[in-house]
Simulated scan of single mutants.
Amino acid sequence: MIKFFRKIRKKTLSENKFGKYLTYAIGEIILVVIGILIALSINNHNNNRQQRKIEQAYLLSLQSEFKTNLEKINNCLTENYNQVKAVENMLTLFDDNVRDTISEKEISNIIFSVFKGVPTFIPSKGVLTDIISSGNLNLIQNEKLRQEIASFDSTLDLLKIQEVSTHEMQKELQNQLNENGSVRKVLINRGFNFEHRSISDNASNKKVFGLIKFENTLLDYYLTINATNGQRFFGGIKEQIEQILVDLDSEIIK
């Protein structure tokens, strides 16, 4: 087509018809512009297709990652609920009428259930970190989903502060038990065998439940772990993960 216009342009120039030459020259320019626009359109279309392929790959990977995180947070909720119940059971030992009716072995079991560990949420974030650090978050077209993913880390920061506080309180409880009770007695009643005897073999852990300081610290710990399952921490994170999974599912091409 361009060659056709060039032939006409040469002919009009040779015939000294400047007006027609100008018309054909403009037509030639328009054709070139149209060709460039078509090429750009095709290139943009190919780029968009490639970006959508990358987006779908990310969405599928995020879906798998957040399903894992949902399982982890559910486990944390269950473990923390059990911890709350264990502390509630221990709090009954500050009642003389309860404490005097149970054995040392039962008291050791209660103590062990409280000190055996604090649930900690360690999320899988490999895909999430890669998307954010590489600057590819904008590849996700759904703005609401982008915001949910971007804010997930900040929610974890708040939880980390709560978990540190919980660990510190449990450590303080452990210190008070070490000062006023017998860890060895707990271990023996849990079936641990020591080769040699000790001065604490005949000790009783009942006396620590006569200490107001130990009770106050235990109550602080109880309130903290009870709040951990609430909306600001484990409970809220679970809802956030569930919503992200719903929005991911709606964006994934079946």
Rank of each mutant, 00 (worst) to 15 (best):
N43F: 10
T217S: 13
R6L: 11
Q162A: 12
A25I: 03
Q51E: 11
G236N: 01
A57G: 01
Q162G: 08
S41G: 12
E106R: 15
V87I: 15
K67V: 09
T92Q: 06
I8T: 11
S61P: 01
N47M: 12
T12H: 09
S103V: 09
R190E: 11
R197Q: 10
I8Y: 05
H196Y: 08
K238L: 08
A150Q: 10
Q51M: 11
N97G: 07
N136V: 02
L156P: 01
D153I: 07
K160W: 00
E143V: 08
D157K: 14
G191T: 07
I34K: 08
A57N: 10
Y58Q: 07
L245C: 03
L77Q: 11
I107F: 04
Q174R: 15
M169H: 07
Q56N: 10
V114D: 01
N226Y: 07
N80E: 09
I131G: 01
S165C: 06
G19R: 08
I253H: 12
S108D: 00
I253C: 05
L248F: 04
E65M: 08
N75E: 15
S61T: 02
K10Y: 10
F234I: 03
S204A: 09
V114L: 04
N205S: 12
I132A: 01
N142P: 02
D130Y: 04
K10H: 12
I110G: 00
E88G: 15
